[in-house]
Design a protein around this nucleic acid. Structure first.
Lengths: 175, 175
DNA sequence: TACTTTGTTTAGTTATTACTAAACGTTCTA
DNA sequence: TAGAACGTTTAGTAATAACTAAACAAAGTA
């Protein structure tokens, strides 16, 4: 029915779609998919061949994937090439991604909420008392929501070695 | 120091950034922020005035926000205008967003992984036995990861009325 | 030292997406 | 029924992001 290449292509397309859905480049998903289906680590040129992307694109995407912990770079002695292999411990990847997202723009944006709250509580601006109280209440609620989210991700990240089965079980207890 | 408008603007920009970070339009974050800081529901025209966006943009973004459960439309008798208010129960919103994401493109992409697995197990393609076994193992692992993720989101969605404090506590038990 | 082989960086292109401006369809009002 | 008030839709634009092609840097090899 379907030949080897077609079967693999469908898989690659699927992961590309998932990648795009989560706001990552499509090519990133494709690269990961190719590596994931490969028994041996692949070099940059092999990835060029198997994905149809150019070296430049592979280079940048591979770097991002490494930073996220979704793939791991492999260097062989006496071989100047870089090889890459898919990380098969998804839980490890998730922790890696979470700690990655923790920083950067997100924290920065969340911080601005904190600043707003501080200014309001410091009496800045010329709000009438009722409005100020209202604003403080609202912003404070948002703030604590972010704090809870943060705690949650930290908690998840702390669960080293444990798989999702565990989380699943725990949550099922709550019904 | 900072006037009322500046304080609010900073907050709006912050939420815009958060929105963008999660792959949503910046304007969506801005609209939610404005509503969130408003004691009373706002009409479309008031949103136009306070965000600087045009009616069209407000219209589409407001629809998306409603679908996600982040804001709620309010209609008043004898008033043809639509009003919108921010949902303040973030937990409710999260559940809503999760169930929204559940469907659509994501499921579709995940399904393609399942199809790949089925084809492999059905003996399609002309892989040699060793490679087929390898591929099946890999794809199966990914499949069960997705299943676990799915269970997790369902479990979270099932926790009606419970706040994040609960989840936090539960996860902290695991250390 | 010149030439290969590798990966990275950059400048420019393509594709996508969020937006604006304006036309449109409805529904209410005079 | 004409006109006004709303929200939606659409066609076009602007901004952004991912990619290609090619120049480049680094580091080995002849």
């Amino acid at each position: 029915m379907a030949d080897n290449q077609t079967i693999k292509s469908n898989f690659v397309e699927g992961l590309s779609g998932i990648s795009a859905f989560w706001g990552f480049p499509k090519g990133m998903g494709a690269i990961f998919a190719v590596l994931y289906l490969s028994p041996a680590p692949l070099s940059l040129d092999e990835l060029v061949a198997q994905t149809g992307l150019t070296k430049g694109a592979i280079s940048t995407n591979v770097r991002a994937l490494s930073r996220m912990g979704l793939i791991k770079p492999i260097t062989r002695l006496g071989d100047r090439k870089d090889y890459y292999a898919a990380e098969t411990d998804f839980y490890k990847s998730i922790r890696s991604i979470l700690s990655e997202r923790q920083n950067s723009e997100f924290d920065q944006a969340v911080a601005s909420v904190k600043v707003t709250l501080q200014k309001l509580e410091a009496g800045e601006g010329s709000f009438d008392p009722a409005e100020r109280a209202f604003l403080i209440e609202r912003v404070k609620a948002l703030q604590s929501f972010f704090d809870a989210l943060d705690s949650l991700t930290r908690a998840v990240a702390r669960l080293e070695g444990l798989g999702f089965g565990t989380i699943q079980n725990v949550l099922s207890i709550l019904k």
